[in-house]
């Protein structure tokens, strides 16, 4: 703070502080607080707002437990409330998207950080970034076309003789998973790339020199070093996937219902912002709990991720 004052003077420093405070308070804290407050109040006609019916309760939160849908899980039939099922599927598939992103990003990150010639790095990074120049909406529509039944993907696979009949890609949650992995894989790639890049190459060579095969060098030396990067990438991909609305809306099938779509339905189709807010907070809180639990299991501390 002293340093800022000395460097930029009172006026500019004050402006920085005010802008940051404005951003935090007006654009983040207040709207969230407004939603939180509303989530505890009933959805009432205009005239009843502030009247005797307008009392705080958990009724909106409890709505998630209403309605039931029998679901087949590993041969067992479980009856779950519709929205709980949607929530569990969202968390489960987001975790799957995270694992898939890791499986794709780790080898690529290792390749970029340790194998590729430094002089070809800028070109490779450019190739990775170029798709981001196109808006997310357009990219998702592009995938809709690629994955459609008579689209380029099936056409190519049929042409190459890999499949005999076209695959219905936009079915269940398949296309959502593909779209989410595509959209968020870079959020996994870069933290892992940074982590692996900071590993002293001598450590990899030392392991090999001591007789270690490549997979054990990864398991014992490179992966443990990259763990904070993997953790921050995984948290980002998971949270972004679970919170994504665009991809499930554009690439979802008739059978899929992402939890964000449920929130959206409450807010914009039922015009019930109170219940929508309650659902949004359920998603936020439970996802945070889930992430914390997974971090506990993998022994990752919050301070590791912040590095």
């Amino acid at each position: 703070m002293q340093d800022l004052l000395r460097r930029y003077g009172t006026g500019l420093t004050g402006a920085f502080v005010l802008l940051t405070a404005f951003w935090l308070l007006v654009l983040i804290v207040l709207p969230n607080f407004y939603l939180l407050e509303n989530s505890f109040r009933p959805y009432l006609p205009r005239v009843d707002m502030g009247g005797p019916l307008d009392t705080y309760s958990f009724d909106n939160y409890a709505k998630i437990l209403t309605g039931s849908s029998p679901t087949e899980v590993f041969g067992l039939t479980v009856t779950l409330p519709v929205h709980v099922k949607s929530f569990l599927l969202t968390v489960g598939y987001s975790a799957f998207v995270t694992v898939l992103s890791f499986a794709l990003a780790y080898p690529l990150a290792y390749y970029l950080a340790k194998i590729v010639q430094p002089k070809s790095l800028p070109t490779l990074f450019l190739l990775l970034f170029v798709p981001l120049w196109v808006s997310e909406v357009l990219r998702s529509f592009a995938w809709f076309i690629i994955l459609s039944l008579k689209g380029p993907l099936n056409f190519s696979l049929l042409g190459l003789g890999i499949i005999e009949a076209p695959i219905r890609w936009i079915a269940g949650y398949r296309s959502i998973i593909i779209g989410l992995v595509y959209t968020y894989v870079l959020f996994m790639l870069f933290p892992i790339y940074n982590a692996i890049q900071s590993l002293d190459t001598n450590q990899i060579e030392a392991a090999e020199d001591l007789g270690s095969p490549w997979w054990r060098t990864h398991w014992r030396v490179i992966l443990p070093h990259a763990k904070p990067g993997i953790a921050s990438g995984a948290v980002m991909v998971f949270m972004l996937s679970a919170g994504s609305l665009l991809v499930p809306v554009l690439l979802g099938s008739t059978e899929s219902n992402w939890f964000t779509q449920v929130i959206q339905q409450w807010m914009f189709e039922a015009a019930d912002w109170n219940t929508g807010s309650a659902y949004a907070f359920i998603l936020l809180v439970l996802c945070t709990v889930f992430v914390s639990l997974v971090m506990r299991v993998f022994r990752v501390k919050l301070s590791d991720i912040a590095k």
Binding site: Q203, E205, A206, E208, D209, L210, S212, R220, V221, H225
Partner: peptide, 21 residues
């Protein structure tokens, strides 16, 4: 012969000990 197949052991200039072990 790869380094992991040779009967040699190298001590690196910066030692390259594994800090997480």
């Amino acid at each position: 012969q790869r380094p992991n197949q040779r009967p040699t052991a190298l001590i690196f200039q910066n030692l390259a000990l594994f800090p997480l072990m």
